[in-house]
Design a protein around this nucleic acid. Structure first.
Length: 286
DNA sequence: ACACGCTCCTGAACGC
DNA sequence: TGCGTTCAGGAGCGTG
């Protein structure tokens, strides 16, 4: 389940391989993923060069020499791989999009987008500013736009559980279920806490909590990046490698197991917030 | 403005 | 062994 670190690892994997490459052809093996592909997609990008690979939130952005940008969201199970197929012309069941490239390093005719559950999607956009998918996104958590003060302002009107609010990409962009659970654990915040309760002005204790949360979000994302992301079922790096951060989850997927905080005797519990599992320690997340 | 539930999808895991 | 059910969840969308 790609969240910010996984998407960033894919970006870092793809960028040196395909920057400067020419898109000779695009093969769409079905008419849609989650949404229909853009009209004339193959025709519009064929013959262009890839001039850069960027990331915004959980979106990959392939900058083209035409000035347009391919927007790619991996959904739950999307992944790119840069292998030539075993037999030319033979692709796997869920290989939906095939970029035929020339001028890659190392040479490979195919960049393949595969996505079993098809929660991912692609679009072709003219710029980031006018793109409906991007224009309402909140700040990047690894940029200096993330601060306790910023969170306080954005939490102030939100009565819903902080777990849900942190998943809202308009509040902060790029977090998903796993890293929200982990960041809340690290900062000792119960996922059910109404977000606005942490935004009380001039409350030193709550202010400290927001500082902790800010630091925890940064920390957990940085650590995940260093570990190559988290590989549960589907996520893979571009050349097929697994990430390793899943071995360091403190709460995610650990229902019923002991809390890992030193001297805490708690047991990890699972709760549901907006139809997603939240894992937390009821003893030290208050 | 905000909260909530529904929807899309497949494969793995589980129960009988 | 096999079949049906449940679960995983990102995010747009509709409704209240």
């Amino acid at each position: 389940m790609p969240e910010l670190p996984e998407v960033e690892i894919v970006r870092r994997g793809l960028s040196p391989l395909i920057t400067g490459a020419r898109i000779d052809n695009l093969i769409l093996r079905r008419k849609n993923l989650r949404f229909d592909f853009p009209v004339g997609f193959a025709k519009k990008i064929s013959g262009t060069h890839i001039t850069g690979v960027l990331r915004r939130a959980k979106y990959l952005l392939f900058e083209l020499s035409s000035g347009q940008i391919i927007l790619s969201h991996l959904g739950m199970t999307g992944n790119y791989r840069f292998f030539a197929p075993v037999k030319p012309g033979h692709f796997e069941k869920h290989d939906h999009v095939i970029f035929e490239l020339s001028g890659t390093n190392p040479p490979s005719p195919f960049l393949i987008y595969s996505d079993p559950r098809r929660f991912g999607f692609m679009d072709l956009i003219d710029n980031q500013e006018d793109c409906a998918f991007l224009k309402h996104l909140g700040p990047e958590p690894l940029s200096n736009q993330l601060s306790a003060q910023m969170l306080r302002e954005r939490f102030a009107t939100r009565r819903g559980p902080i777990k849900t609010v942190l998943l809202d990409q308009r509040v902060i962009a790029g977090l998903g279920n796993i890293y929200v659970c982990e960041a809340l654990f690290r900062s000792g915040i119960n996922p059910s806490t109404p977000a606005k309760n942490l935004a009380v002005p001039n409350d030193c204790a709550q202010s400290d909590k927001l500082e902790d949360l800010t630091r925890s979000i940064r920390e957990v994302l940085h650590e995940a990046l260093e570990a190559g992301g988290s590989t549960l079922k589907d996520y893979r790096q571009v050349e097929g490698q697994s990430g390793y951060f899943q071995h360091r989850f403190a709460v995610y997927g650990r229902e019923g197991e002991p809390c890992l905080r030193p001297a805490c005797a708690g047991q990890i519990e699972r709760a549901i917030h907006s139809a997603r599992s939240s894992f937390f320690c009821p003893t030290c997340q208050t």
